[in-house]
Write a protein that binds this DNA or RNA. Structure first.
Lengths: 225, 225
DNA sequence: CTGCATCCGCTTCGATACTG
DNA sequence: CAGTATCGAAGCGGATGCAG
């Protein structure tokens, strides 16, 4: 990318990650290390040469690291370097800012449930749930399930499923997103037949309270953090 | 900009502010409302048609608002709308991430001291200085002075100067930046003749402590916030 | 199949000129 | 002052090729 040539930290940051696709690559790697093909699957529409270019620049900038397997069965693994991990707070703030825009997303948009993981992490990061009991929620979204869990006062979101969750929700990505953002109530989702929800009444109520806590937090109302 | 077409809050955010120059426009407006010319001055290198395009899209997206004066003396004023103010946390995180990159900035980079204001705000936002006494620091940077002040437990950075600061520092932009980032100690700056510093010894010491507090905070060490 | 490199049509960008 | 118009250059998107 062309550099801005400004003595400004924001401009310098954008010199590195301001390019098209670049932050989305970081998003992909924020969940797990990826092979080239994994990245391409998570970035529908990217030109393969662009992906290769971006990976090179990101490595040069120290944002990602590449782990090359020896010749016989070569599969490069791309992962966030320390400098890349340091981008996650910025990424989270952008996710929070962009979340409302999902309300009027296009029908034809690509959907990956793993994108919701980053969104959930951003929404629930810093939310105090220390008063909440442990809770496991399995979200069965198409073929890529994700898990929400409350453990010792922290709420986690991650890829994968668990055998015996307190609540299990089967739905598509947009529905899961609407539920997590507090736009669609659990009961309403069931009633409209957009989701199948299993779990005890109390567990479902605890999940509803969590969602409510994540929906709008004071720090998010005030721009100055 | 071409849309990503992904059902992902980050992608949606980048659909709006991911374009080249866009976040820098938000940076300019984060300090004060701007006329078109002010914006162009703060965005050296931008093509005027691009600026016009971006302003249109940003207004359409509700990020900025335009206040048009009546025909006789028409001077449009651009300012951040509510949705634009909500971008500041993300902008701050990017600023924090980009700050270390200033260490090896190019000599030919453009410099505006007002860019340091956004940087200082980001660095000191959330820093607890409730135990610090009120303090006013005037930074006389070329022709655009800025002020740091500690008032009722909050540290503020803003454009403009004050008549009787506790500490007054005259230097150029990069030097001020290096001092604020903790890369250049106040005494060293004086010794190397890069800055002229006035103020009592105790006031200077208090400033030094502030800078040290802003330099690295625990929350910034841990990526997950 | 993975991990790119190359080519090509098209869009966007950057620089300059010009107008109300 | 506040933009619009124009045009060459660069970057992007899509298709294809190809080595390990």
């Amino acid at each position: 990318m062309r550099q801005y040539g400004q003595f400004c930290p924001l401009a310098k940051a954008l010199d590195v990650v301001g390019d098209r696709w670049t932050l989305l690559i970081v998003r992909e790697l924020s969940e797990r290390p990826c092979r080239y093909t994994d990245l391409r699957d998570g970035l529908p529409g990217i030109a393969t040469n662009l992906l290769a270019d971006r990976l090179k620049s990101l490595e040069a900038a120290g944002v990602i690291s590449v782990e090359a397997a020896p010749p016989p069965i070569a599969t490069n693994l791309y992962r966030l370097a320390e400098r890349g991990e340091a981008l996650l707070p910025a990424l989270h703030e952008l996710v929070l800012w962009g979340a409302p825009l999902l309300a009027d997303a296009d029908e034809t948009d690509e959907v990956r449930s793993r994108w919701l993981v980053a969104a959930a992490q951003a929404m629930f990061a810093g939310i105090d749930v220390s008063d909440a009991d442990p809770l496991e929620v399995a979200l069965d979204i198409d073929d890529e399930p994700i898990t929400l869990s409350v453990e010792h006062g922290q709420l986690h979101a991650e890829l994968g499923t668990v055998p015996h969750p307190d609540v299990r929700i089967a739905c598509d990505g947009p529905t899961a997103s609407a539920i997590l953002r507090g736009q669609l109530h659990l009961d309403a989702a069931t009633r409209q037949d957009r989701a199948q929800i299993n779990g005890t009444r109390t567990a479902r109520a605890r999940l509803a309270r969590l969602i409510d806590a994540g929906r709008v937090t004071p720090q998010r109302m005030v721009p100055g953090r």
